[in-house]
Amino acid sequence: MAFFSKKKTIPNMYEDLQAQIDARRERWFVFIDKLNTRAEELYLAALPELNALKASDSDPNKSTYNKVLSGVCGQLANMRSKAYDAQDREISDFYDYLRHGEITALHPLSRYLTEFRNDCYDRFTEFEQSINMKTDKLREVERDEIEYEYAKIIDSFNADKDKFRCSQCGHLLPVERIFFISVHIVCPACNTQNTLEPGRSARNLQFIAKKLAEKRCEHLLNAYQNEIQNERDLYFKAHNIKLDSIHKNDREKAIAQEQIEAIHAERKRSIENAPHLYNVYLRALYDEMNRILPEFKEHHEKLYLEQINQKGENYGK
């Protein structure tokens, strides 16, 4: 930190200090941009590589694909934590150093320093969001394939259901639904108790049920999340109108106040609507899970109640 520790006794001391802040901001932006570009490169290189791995991997668990996916996400996380550590060291510490030294609250550059820190933090937040988005997208490939996985299970069931024969007399066994774990099935002809051990495809049903239901109810979750975002946007909109009106005349202030009140009314509706949208999503999600796996209805309903209660607590009910 040597370059900004020199004592400023010269007349243009503010300009000098300002230049130091500007330089650091610029350096921070360049650093974050470089990381962002590299993250983008990795992401673009990883997509085709992962697709190829998935296509060529004969292992049903797609182990190599999953390992490499985890490693790519690890690198993205590595860049994020690199930026995070640098922010601590180069921005927060720099800010604190000036804030507790030359630029105290009443200093003419006080606001300038605060803005510097906010600009830098905002740039990091944008970067972090872009990293998270990439990680989500990489994992989304799996999510998008869930309908396809389900269709495969159904196809395989339809193809096989008329092939199960009693191992004692050869009579066709009644297999009317997808058994995802081993079951006893009695032969309608000779009364022998057969054990049906499902294949990999049918077993998979219980493991994809939740992801499938989530995918199918995604639009309802989005509606809820959009409402939450809407509330935040309205809050900041009102806040900004308030800030802007501080130095305005009374008439303009009155107009601003009216606008703020209208926004708050809208915001109140949004706050009330959000839990409703969440409940709609959750009910639809568990209904869908019940449709996919009716045998687990009791279990699903317990989980549903628990989740509703938890969210209720969060909403301060």
Binding site: D59, D160, S167, L173, Q193, T195, L196, E197, R200
Partner: peptide, 17 residues
Amino acid sequence: KNYAETDETLEAKTEAR
């Protein structure tokens, strides 16, 4: 190497004891 390959078979089967 992949950890403990599952021994579950690809195909479904029926058995009587």
